[in-house]
Design a protein around this nucleic acid. Structure first.
Length: 1027
RNA sequence: GGGCGAAUAGCUCAGUUGGUUAGAGCGCCACUCUUACAAAGUGGAUGUCGGGGGUUCGAGUCCCUUUUCGCCCA
């Protein structure tokens, strides 16, 4: 043994090695990517993590996948830029800081004021950005850290201003009244994408509104039904269908059509609806027709409680087939009612304050929260006799994703981006292939969402974000507005394109400024214009990420060289919110798509198929995994599970801090503050521990045993390398003539070339798990279990030794390169060691490889080495070893017992395998006595039939008769089953007449072989029984 | 209600255009501390491919239907 190698420990000490290696990469500037005309660019922009908190396992997966592409392309000679950064995440971040403020200081944001709050959030950002970037570094991410950006930094801010100004000038940004989802807790509008419907228990209240001056024969009241009775305070009409009879006819027709097409199970339900319809026709229709006529006459209702007169109107929104056929209209608090109000020119009455209490329009109910107002309204209506009945009902209630509180629909001023053209451009980019989405099925959702072309509400009533760069003023009359507009149009900044102005009908003026310009802002303020308080939706700045980070709006060299980026790797839940918007903004701003490919990776779920989250207690912190298994195991483990079709399901365990046992996490124990270890019986605490008594127990990290496979693999790689290095003493690089190599060398080189090719192909098409599997099998099964085992005796032979050393060194070298993108630390550590023993080891070139594997070149595929015939021949050897090993095991032979065997085979096989006899001795503990077409069989033997060979192991010394009989019987029954199947198939006339000839021939041949094997087995049993 | 996806060994997952006896890792059983690795080695056991129909000489794979689960949208 080489004395030097004694120093190599038999475990990779990742805890001390990884940070050191990472620091060296940093110091050497290995991650830096610059414009280099001699290279092709390869660019990825990171999906910027939110600065709301620490990274979770999903981030670890996302970033590992990116790092693999970056490292591979860097090795392939690209100028590989990975652009890092974080996202300010408007609502989420502000919500967290506000929550903190409330908990620790019992203050609201209004106590602090805008400036102070924003200052606090910056502090939070600094803290978490540092933590997030640190985590990425521990995972091994090779980002160009010099370029780290933040969506709220000056560079991004400039891009946001330019974009906003451009869209505003093109008339693609406008302000309108829209019904928004109002979060009364955060006091901001949230987008449709940020609300979740939840089914809750509620009621359906039937209320009566009296008709003013009902004439004889007319009803004295109308009945309406609602799930939100408090909104009656804001009612401005009641609607009835203009032609109830026609509407019912239409409804009946659709029901009948549906009935015909329905299956037996659904039919009764539809029939019941039809029955209900005919009752309606008789009992309700005459009155609805009457009410429609009264509405046309301009008749009024008296709205109880607030005692307002409101009109009865006709509108098709009132469905005669539902409820009473009449519907209350609350334009300011319901999207459908809002549409009705527009059609019928009804007033819109807002009854809610931003904090979720009833405002002065609610009369006596002003100041109450909406739920309290509901109780009072219902009680009062009941008291007055206007409550007809109350039904229990399950209702879908929208909840804010951020605050988890119920949403109040609410009419407010909102800024919108007009999506018609922008959305179309992003759709075209995918349909014409400029942007390719993998896996392709995700293009559907992208297309459907963009296809709706819904205008994008971009304003948020927050303080944390890019403030909308618009100054506005409303006037009493049109002429005042016009005259100011004239004045502003005449300003020099207007002519130089720094300012744009638009008039919102009828009398509001909006001015947008392109750049941060305090002088100009002051000028506008002196004209009485005031800046909009709202900030932009977070996704507005994220949408610019691929070009804003490269310096746009300046035409920088970076932008020219690195844009469009090569690929975007992200998770499926933001395909619409983020990916689609990046495409349309890139096209609008730069005129080119932001990336050529998009890869959507799986989500990580826990063992129950639920998404991991801190609030459930099933989240796994990547750092816990790194501490236990190492960064390479974390990465390899994630990649190993990252398959095409399925989400990653990962059962989660607590690691007992007392005994290190893994305790399965259940839905019960993951919610407890303390858990008792089922191995050592001691108690440990979880993330929920708050009481001092609970906190006294040590906290258990949450990990997953899924990473054990990867940890073991890293260890295998480490030790295989250790073996190679231990045996490189006296190594001299030598030229190798492939054609003259022994079979085993040709074989491993053929495997290596094939695996190199496959790894590269699979990684390029984002089949990560497949790539990992290919290298894993090569390293473990082909290299370690076979080639290294065969190398052991050869290394003892002075004649063979130099060649074996050369092949070992070369294979290890290539394997390290192939694995480097997935497991960067351990490969770099081994690479450094290997250079001490074999500074130059390439088969083709004598030039020493790069000092750092991160900068080494990607292995090239040597097509000439790919030999299917060699691999087939070698398979015979592997079969033979397996056959003998099986007999040995069945006979319970000790490892030192050498058994003789003979083989019946053709001369070609003998030629092939006889030279490999020595390997059979070392690997199977067996020596061949004969290779022949007609060997003399040992008197007591165990027979195994393998492809083109009959192997007879001489058991004269060892036989365990019972074991051998039972082995043969089992074999026999297996053979019988197969023979039966084949005979059945071959006697089936239609198979013989219809199946292709080659398939039939194959079946026939297989049958013959099986029959031959059957008779051998039968004879063997017979013979054994006689002993 | 609409769309997408999944269901294969005890667990987590592969399975390319339909074609011998459906694979891997973990776990399990047995035997080995054999001088790279016990986080290892060798061998072994384990499946009505969710259910039901259909197409085909032949279906885990294609078609229809159904159940369950997950995600997205309304």
């Amino acid at each position: 043994m080489n004395p030097e190698t004694k120093e190599i420990p038999n475990r990779f000490d990742f805890a001390s090695a990884a940070p050191e290696i990472y620091q060296q990469w940093l110091d050497k500037g290995c991650f830096n990517a610059d414009v280099d005309p001699s290279k092709k660019p390869f660019t990825i922009v990171i999906p910027p993590p939110n600065v709301t908190g620490a990274l979770h396992l999903g981030h670890a997966l996302n970033n590992t996948l990116q790092d693999i592409q970056i490292r591979m392309h860097r090795m392939q000679g690209f100028s590989a830029l990975w652009m890092p950064g974080t996202d300010h995440a408007g609502i989420a971040t502000q919500a967290i800081v506000e929550k903190r403020l409330k908990e620790t200081e019992n203050k609201t944001r209004h106590d602090l004021g805008r400036e102070k709050l924003v200052e606090r959030i910056w502090q939070w950002k600094e803290q978490y950005e540092k933590r997030i970037l640190g985590q990425l570094q521990q995972v091994g991410c090779s980002c160009d850290w010099r370029r780290t950006r933040f969506t709220l930094d000056p560079m991004c801010a400039r891009a946001v201003r330019s974009t906003f100004f451009d869209l505003f000038s093109k008339g693609l940004i406008y302000r309108g009244k829209r019904l928004v989802n109002w979060d009364t807790f955060l006091q901001t509008a949230v987008s449709d994408d940020e609300v979740n419907p939840e089914t809750v228990k509620g009621h359906f209240w039937h209320l009566r509104y009296p008709i003013v001056d009902a004439k004889p024969g007319e009803p004295t009241y109308v009945t309406i039904a609602t799930t939100r009775p408090e909104t009656m305070l804001g009612d401005t009409a009641v609607a009835v269908h203009p032609d109830p009879e026609e509407a019912l006819n239409k409804y009946e027709a659709t029901l009948k059509e549906k009935l015909e097409g329905a299956n037996a199970k659904d039919q009764p339900g539809i029939q019941a609806q039809l029955d209900d319809l005919s009752v309606r026709r008789q009992e309700l229709l005459p009155q609805l027709i009457l009410l429609a006529n009264m509405a046309r006459d301009g008749r009024k209702l008296r709205l109880p409680l607030v005692e307002r007169e409101i009109p009865l109107v006709v509108d098709a929104w009132a469905k005669p087939e539902l409820g009473s056929g009449c519907v209350k209209i609350t334009p300011a608090h319901d999207p459908n009612d809002y549409e009705v109000a527009l059609r019928c020119s009804l007033p819109m009455l807002n009854i809610m304050n931003p904090d979720g209490t009833v405002n002065e329009n609610g009369g006596p109910y002003a100041g109450l929260t909406m739920p309290k107002a509901r109780n009072k309204v219902v009680a009062a209506m009941d008291y007055l006799g206007f409550l007809e009945k109350t039904e229990d009902r399950e209702i879908e209630l929208k909840h804010s994703d951020r605050s988890k509180t119920p949403i109040e629909p609410y009419l407010a001023d909102q800024w919108f981006v007009r999506m018609e053209q922008l959305a179309q451009s992003a759709m075209d980019a995918v349909s014409n292939g400029d942007v390719k989405i993998y896996p392709a099925r995700y293009a559907n959702g992208y297309m459907d969402w963009l296809g709706e072309k819904r205008d994008w509400p971009v304003g948020r009533q927050l303080w944390w974000g890019h403030q909308i760069p618009i100054w506005s003023k409303s006037f009493e009359n049109v002429s005042d507005a016009q005259s100011l507009k004239f004045k502003i149009d005449a300003m020099p900044e207007r002519a130089s394109g720094l300012l744009s102005v638009s008039l919102e009908e009828p009398t509001t003026l909006h001015v947008c400024i392109r750049d941060e310009d305090p002088g100009l802002e002051a000028k506008l303020q002196s004209l009485g214009l005031e800046r909009q308080a709202d900030v932009l939706d977070t996704w507005f700045s994220s949408a610019l990420w691929p070009h804003s980070t490269l310096g746009w709006p300046d035409q920088t060299a970076d932008l020219e060289y690195f844009y469009p980026t090569s690929t975007l790797i992200t998770s499926r839940d933001i395909i619409t919110l983020w990916v689609a918007r990046m495409v349309l903004m890139g096209l609008n701003n730069v005129g080119k798509v932001p990336f050529q490919e998009v890869f959507i990776h799986p989500k990580i779920l826990d063992g129950y198929g639920e998404t991991m989250s801190k609030s459930k207690g099933n989240g796994v912190d990547p750092l816990d995994v790194i501490n236990k298994f190492g960064p390479d195991a974390l990465r390899f483990g994630l990649v190993w599970l990252c398959t095409e079709t399925q989400d990653v399901r990962m059962p989660v365990q607590f690691e007992c801090p007392h005994c290190e046992a893994l305790v399965n996490q259940t839905k019960e124990n993951r919610a407890q503050p303390t858990v008792v270890c089922d191995k050592c019986g001691k108690t440990f605490s979880t993330q929920w521990a708050e009481a001092e008594s609970d906190k006294a127990h040590p906290k258990a990290p949450v990990v997953s045993e899924r990473f054990e496979v990867a940890r073991n693999f890293v260890n295998k790689l480490w030790n295989a390398s250790r073996f190679v290095m231990m045996n490189l003493e006296g190594f001299q690089p030598q030229a190798v003539d492939f054609e003259k190599l022994p079979l085993e060398d040709q074989w491993i080189l053929s495997r290596l070339a094939t695996v190199t090719k496959a790894t590269q192909t699979e990684l390029k098409r984002y089949h990560y798990a497949e790539a990992a599997r290919v290298v894993y099998d090569f390293a473990w099964d082909h290299f370690c279990s076979l080639y290294v085992e065969m190398a052991k005796p050869r290394l003892q032979d002075p004649a063979a030794r130099p060649l074996v050393q050369q092949i070992l060194a070369h294979c290890l070298d290539s394997m390290l390169r192939l694995l480097h993108p997935i497991t960067p630390f351990v490969t770099e550590a081994i690479w450094q060691e290997l250079a001490r023993f074999a500074p130059s080891r390439d088969l083709q070139s004598t030039a020493p490889p790069s000092k750092w594997i991160i900068q080494a070149s990607w292995p090239t595929v040597n097509e000439a080495h790919i030999r299917p015939s060699v691999e087939k021949q070698f398979a015979h050897f592997v079969d033979l070893v397996g056959a003998i090993r099986e007999i040995r095991s069945r006979q319970n032979l000790g490892p030192k017992d050498q058994v003789p065997f003979c083989v019946r085979c053709e001369p070609e096989m003998e030629q092939l395998l006889a030279p490999m006899s020595s390997f059979l001795s070392s690997m199977a503990g067996a020596h061949a006595t004969q290779w022949s077409q007609n060997p003399t069989l040992p008197s007591i033997n165990a027979h195994v039939a393998i492809d083109q060979m009959d192997v007879f192991v001489d058991l004269t010394q060892f036989i365990d008769v019972a074991a051998e009989i039972s082995r043969n019987e089992k074999l026999l029954s297996n053979l019988m089953k197969q023979i039966q199947g084949k005979e059945g198939r071959l006697s089936n006339e239609s198979f013989v007449s219809k199946a292709p000839a080659d398939i039939i021939a194959k079946e026939r041949q297989a049958l013959e072989e099986l029959i031959a094997q059957r008779s051998v087995a039968e004879q063997a049993i017979e013979k054994l029984r006689q002993l």
